[in-house]
Design a protein around this nucleic acid. Structure first.
Length: 480
RNA sequence: GGCGCUAUCGUCUAGGGGACUAGGACGGGGCCCUCUCAAGGCCCAAACACGGGUUCGAAUCCCGUUAGCGCUACCA
């Protein structure tokens, strides 16, 4: 068996979608697993919608995900002359014919067919034109497309994920392969390029299943054996509909911004429509490559579950030491307009267990760098309301006790001792003194243990914030 | 409408005739830990779409129904 050659062939008419990224990932995993070649081909033949910016975004997205390619990127638009020559070769061989029907005529025929409840099929009126008539129109300069003459025969293939799929030629149409401006239509361009590039396996979304018989017919007409087709299931939004902007973040760039790790995204995407069998979920890149097979691909469409993605990202997050998080966290902080001079590692360590994304880590680090950046959330406000005057009262008490600690004593151990003693001597539960501090410093009722929080925020920042908050909420009345 | 694809917990999935009182993960609920928690530990609820076959035996094989999705362009 020759080594596989696969391609990822996005059209640069939009951003790199998670569905496209998943298809790219499968192609890449298959190539790496089998020692094959991964080719990147940009299908830019839709000139109206294709842009260089989209191409760049797609390339950047793939790089971010760690998906590489061995050949390319090739640009389909550069092969226009081969496409045209191939179409004309089919025309000369009598396997295609010129069609002079205009778009308007076709539209009229289509709507008529719709109105009568019949499915539209091109009636081959131009195929029946006499040769002299065709020649006359051509020399008169009448624009024409080239249509493929589709035989009525069974077209079937053994799909690597679905098994045998078959269509009848009579259910298909004599489809256009070359536009009147001599540029190729998708199905022709794909087959022409895949033959030219020696593609052995076509791994793509299953929305292409109905294109496949047309493409196989083209392979037959050109005298080539079709490649192996593997149609991977769609990725759906939470409502079971095709993923779109309505579903929120759908571009891989969105997840990059949210602080999702490429490794986590890759791991998660690999599990959308593929399973290694058994219970494995968190897998390293080499494991993914080793385990990946076309047989493990699912037939059923998968719903993209952001919550589980974030959970998985959290798994990667907690497995990574703070030292490796330094750069990404700094980047996020910079985007938030926060420069820093402090060593962030201890801050990162104290918040990463409770975080799922880098963005979340950065937000919490920012608050610990400067508690005045915090604003109370719903739970924080509820606590203030519930405790009433005791909130600021206990806070002042704590502030006074904490002030007794010198800078050299400001560590988690001493802080805990101090707070415990304070609670005991005032007949308070530990939580009654801890929670107000937590809310004052973070705005929330959730954080690392308060003594650790105090240590990480530092003596001056902590004390300032505590007295400030006590004063503000105490309405100027000292509770002491 | 026509053609095609698909159908296991809410979601991602394991399962390829007996090992299934259907397993894992996310999410949900509860308990423990505890100053709080989105962290950790333990526990619970939750699914084979429906109907026919085949078989000693069906989540697994076949057929039909239903539902969902895709395609049906001089888009890709």
């Amino acid at each position: 068996m020759t080594t596989p050659r696969v391609r990822f062939a996005p059209s640069p008419t939009g951003y790199l979608h998670v569905g496209g990224a998943r298809t790219a990932l499968f192609n890449w995993l298959f190539a790496r697993h089998s020692g094959g070649t991964h080719i990147l081909r940009i299908e830019d033949t839709d000139r109206e919608r294709s842009t260089a910016e989209h191409t760049k975004v797609i390339l950047d997205g793939l790089s971010w995900l760690g998906i590489s390619w061995d050949e390319g990127p090739y640009f389909q638009g550069e092969y226009a002359s081969r496409h045209r020559a191939d179409a004309e070769r089919l025309l000369a061989a009598g396997k295609a014919y010129r069609c002079f029907c205009t778009r308007e005529e076709l539209d009229a025929q289509r709507s008529q067919a719709d109105a009568s409840g019949m499915g539209f099929r091109y009636d081959r009126r131009c195929y029946r034109l006499a040769a002299v008539e065709v020649a006359a129109r051509v020399s008169a300069g009448t624009p024409s497309t080239i249509r493929f003459l589709l035989d009525d025969e069974e077209i079937a293939w053994n799909d690597a994920v679905h098994g045998r799929i078959s269509f009848q030629g009579r259910d298909l149409d004599d489809f256009v392969i070359l536009r009147s401006d001599h540029t190729a239509i998708y199905n022709l361009a794909v087959v022409s390029d895949d033959i030219d590039m020696g593609i052995t396996h076509v791994i793509r979304g299953d929305d292409h299943i109905s294109n496949t018989p047309k493409q196989i017919a083209l392979y037959r007409a050109f005298g080539y054996n079709p490649p192996v087709f593997a149609h991977v299931p769609m990725i759906l939004g939470s409502d079971g509909k095709k993923l779109s902007k309505r579903h929120g973040a759908t571009a891989v760039g969105d997840y990059q911004e949210q602080g999702i790790f490429p490794a986590a995204m890759r791991n998660f995407l690999a599990l959308m429509g593929w399973s290694p069998g058994g219970d494995r979920e968190i897998m390293t890149e080499p494991e993914l490559v080793r385990l990946f097979t076309l047989e493990g691909i699912q037939k059923k469409a998968a719903v993209f579950d952001t919550t589980k993605l974030e959970w998985m990202n959290g798994q990667y997050l907690s497995a990574l030491p703070a030292s490796e998080l330094l750069q990404p966290v700094r980047r996020q902080l910079a985007r938030m307009g926060i420069g820093d001079s402090r060593d962030l590692a201890p801050l990162i360590d104290s918040v990463k267990a409770r975080s799922r994304t880098i963005l979340h880590v950065a937000e919490q680090v920012a608050v610990r760098l400067d508690p005045s950046r915090s604003s109370p959330d719903a739970k924080g406000e509820a606590l203030v309301r519930k405790m009433g005057a005791a909130f600021s009262g206990n806070l002042s008490l704590a502030g006074a006790a904490l002030e007794g600690l010198q800078a050299g004593e400001w560590n988690a151990g001493r802080l805990l001792e101090t707070l415990r003693a304070l609670a005991e001597s005032n007949g308070l539960k530990l939580g009654d003194v801890m929670q107000p501090i937590r809310v004052a410093l973070t705005g929330s009722t959730v954080s690392e243990p308060v003594n650790e929080l105090l240590e990480v925020v530092g003596r001056d920042n902590s004390l300032n914030r505590i007295s400030e908050t006590a004063r503000r909420l105490g309405g100027g009345v000292s509770a002491a």
